Amino acid sequence: MSTDSNNRQRILDAAHAIFAEAGLAGLSVRAIAARAGLSTIGVYSHFKGKRGILLALYADGFVRLGDAADIPAQSAGESDLVGLLVNRYIDFHRNHRAHYQLMFGMDRSQLGDSGTLEPIAKAAIERLAATLGRLLPADQPADLALAMAFRVWVLMHGYVTLGEMARFRMMDEAEWRAEVVGAVCQLLAGFKVVGMAQPKSNHGPLCC
């Protein structure tokens, strides 16, 4: 890795760590530079300031989310694809809370215009659609998987958001994850997807 690439990654790592610890209020160019062991000029030369860093973290978050949704065909058949997908989404939220807050919890006007931001999020949705598309009959319209992916994403996002509120956690972790899987299965049933089956248990990461 070149020095420039290495410094850029150091800046992003420092920014992510500060954002995770102190939120947006603690994320200043000076603090990022100090954490990365670089000058403020070095930060500006790579990202043109705080907005550029936030945009880079936003894009990185959606790449990571796309990675979570991108499940190779050989690693999961139709019978366990949904359970694996849901649990990977929940794990993404748990393991990358700062990214998640940046992606879904802040005013996007602080990051840039919609023309810059929308393709970043759409790329992650398309990777989710490619995975879920394996559950659709081959003769379905090409855009059906994308519509299905968007609805599944919204449903999973709703569950993990409510899961942050203690009053909505009236079950243990395994039961809660199973509830999310069951809800996604029910949603997918409306698309007449193949490979659907009833959950066999109320515990553990169930599959459809």
Rank of each mutant, 00 (worst) to 15 (best):
R108D: 15
L128H: 01
L117P: 01
T116G: 07
G112Y: 07
H157C: 05
L144K: 13
L135N: 04
L144Y: 09
L132V: 02
S114C: 06
A147T: 11
R134K: 06
Q110V: 14
A149S: 06
A145M: 02
D107E: 04
E164I: 15
Q110A: 11
A130C: 12
M165E: 15
F150A: 11
D107F: 08
P141G: 03
D143S: 06
T116F: 00
A145D: 07
D113T: 04
A149K: 01
D107L: 06
A142T: 04
P119H: 13
P141Q: 11
Q110E: 14
A124K: 00
Y159H: 14
Q140P: 01
P137T: 06
S109V: 08
P141A: 10
A121S: 14
T131P: 02
L136D: 01
V154F: 01
A124L: 00
G158A: 07
G115D: 15
A123D: 09
G115Y: 05
M156S: 03
G163R: 13
F150T: 14
F150S: 06
A142Q: 11
D139W: 00
L162W: 00
M165G: 01
A147W: 10
S114K: 04
P137K: 03
P141K: 12
R134W: 06
L128V: 03
A129H: 00
D113Y: 05
D113C: 11
L144S: 12
A142H: 09
L155G: 14
E118P: 10
R108E: 15
A121G: 09
L155S: 14
T131D: 08
L128R: 01
A138Q: 07
A147M: 09
M156E: 10
R108C: 12
L128T: 01
P137Y: 00
E126Y: 10
G112A: 12
K122G: 01
A145H: 05
M148N: 04
M165R: 07
Q140C: 15
P119A: 13
A138G: 00
P119R: 08
T131H: 00
A166S: 15
L146H: 05
A147P: 08
A145Y: 00
M165K: 05
M156I: 14
D143L: 10
T161K: 10
E126H: 09
L135R: 00
R151P: 06
E118K: 08
L162M: 03
L146N: 05
G163C: 07
D143E: 14
P119T: 14
E164V: 14
G158R: 03
F150K: 10
A124T: 03
L111P: 05
A124V: 05
W153P: 00
A145P: 01
A166W: 11
P141D: 05
G112D: 12
D107P: 05
K122M: 10
L135G: 07
L146Q: 02
S114H: 04
G163D: 14
S114A: 15
R151Q: 09
E164Q: 13
L136T: 04
M165T: 15
A166F: 12
K122N: 10
D107M: 04
R151L: 11
L135Y: 07
S114F: 05
T116H: 02
R151D: 09
A142I: 04
D139F: 00
M165P: 03
D139V: 07
Q110N: 14
Q110W: 10
A147L: 05
W153Y: 11
L132W: 01
E126V: 11
D107G: 07
G163L: 12
T131G: 01
R134D: 05
A166P: 10
